[in-house]
Design a protein around this nucleic acid. Structure first.
Lengths: 240, 240
DNA sequence: GAGTGGTCTAGACCACTTA
DNA sequence: AAGTGGTCTAGACCACTCT
């Protein structure tokens, strides 16, 4: 018997519902005896399921079937219900609270932000870094860049930005975002993200890169948002 | 020395650019001697990088730094350039060709499709399954569901659907899609997807679930699209 | 204390790639 | 043929959880 066939059997049983979300799978010792393999082989079989995102392991406790009941991240939506957050409005629903990690009034932008905002080299930006938390679990990490020529001396460069967040302040400053451009990739988390968002092995992250444009078509904000793929679903509504 | 510290060193060297995309990393044997560890420990260190999506391994050849140069999947876009595909228009750019895998004129929908289309239990659908391929590499797998009451007896239920695909035929039938609703999740691929799309270890997939609505607000098509996360980036343009 | 998963060692044989 | 990664064994010690 091989690690792959152990994984195959357990995977089939999970799909069939023999093991349901939250259930514990057989221990490594149990798999060793039932399949007659060395411990490393049983472990390898279990680690395959973990890498597929089918299970989570708890040290000293066991291997458990994972569940997925996502929060909806709705960029195009205006309203929101209990399980939806609408980041453009900067509301926080779905039991999430925002923690502002850092505000830097003037800073050299990352190359990525500089290009998204269409800035010349050397031009500075105001940077806001935040974490959205649900209970004790960090769910979403966001960094927002606004040209310092717009944000300087305004609440955007302060720790307390006020109700409605960056977009509300931009509107007051005559730079209301009217168009948005988003790019989305799915990738495995970096080590830093695994720690910051406490991401389980076998979980991908969604990275959303959003550029907000004002009525003149000028880029007034760029956000780089990383979401725990095990916790979120994106939603977009648009016309043909 | 531990597996983690080997991974840490190599990760830092990849980020620093010591090893660039396409470069080969030190072999397991080399790591055993430089770090003075057993082979399984060196392997474990390398496998961490693979699981993070930083490297790809080629059996008998070595471990190489991965590159990411994505094709843009632009649902909201109308035009398209060399590296963009606009699925709503059913055009295939970016060197992709479509292979129709199966067309089923009448079938019970999956529960997922039934709910998205708002159909009563027992109502049947026309199903089209396709694969988008770039050279020999499968890139995207899509399954499309249209109520059989609409698609029956039309080219949508034929192998050859004609220019413009499902959306062009729906328009001719008086059910032009005017609104779209998309949901996106990032997850690890299933075994079937790993085989069908030839997905590298450490790569996530993007799953796009799209519902198309006609002018009456009726759902006329539901698509479930799975994209290789190592090959694609999604793009959305929308107004506030 | 008993049971669980996490890590590491030392060695074997196999499969694939490159030259 | 030599070098590479893929798999498995048998055993050790450690860290964490549960009762």
């Amino acid at each position: 018997m091989t690690a792959s066939s152990i994984a195959k059997d357990l995977r089939a049983e999970i799909r069939a519902g023999t093991y349901k979300p939250g259930d514990r799978l057989p221990s490594e010792a149990a798999l060793m005896t039932t399949y007659g393999v060395a411990r490393m082989t049983a472990r390898h079989g279990l680690s395959m399921l973990k890498d597929e995102g089918l299970t989570v392991t708890r040290h000293g406790s066991g291997v458990f079937v994972r569940s997925f009941d996502p929060i909806v991240f709705d960029s195009t939506g205006s309203g929101s219900d209990d399980s939806t957050i609408t980041p453009v409005m900067d509301e926080t629903d779905a039991g999430l609270t925002v923690r502002t990690l850092a505000v830097t009034p003037e800073e050299d932008p990352t190359e990525e932000a500089r290009r998204a905002l269409g800035l010349e080299p050397g031009v500075q930006v105001t940077t806001r870094e935040r974490l959205h938390v649900k209970g004790r679990k960090p769910m979403l990490h966001g960094v927002s860049y606004v040209p310092a020529s717009i944000a300087g001396g305004t609440p955007i460069a302060e720790d307390e930005i006020g109700p409605g967040g960056t977009y509300a302040r931009l509107k007051e400053l005559g730079h209301e975002p009217v168009k948005f451009h988003e790019e989305v990739v799915a990738r495995m988390p970096t080590i830093e993200e695994i720690e910051a968002l406490r991401i389980e092995p076998g979980t991908a992250v969604l990275q959303v890169m959003r550029t907000a444009l004002d009525a003149e078509g000028a880029a007034v904000e760029y956000s780089r948002i990383v979401l725990d793929g095990g916790e979120f679903m994106l939603r977009y509504d648009f016309d043909a």
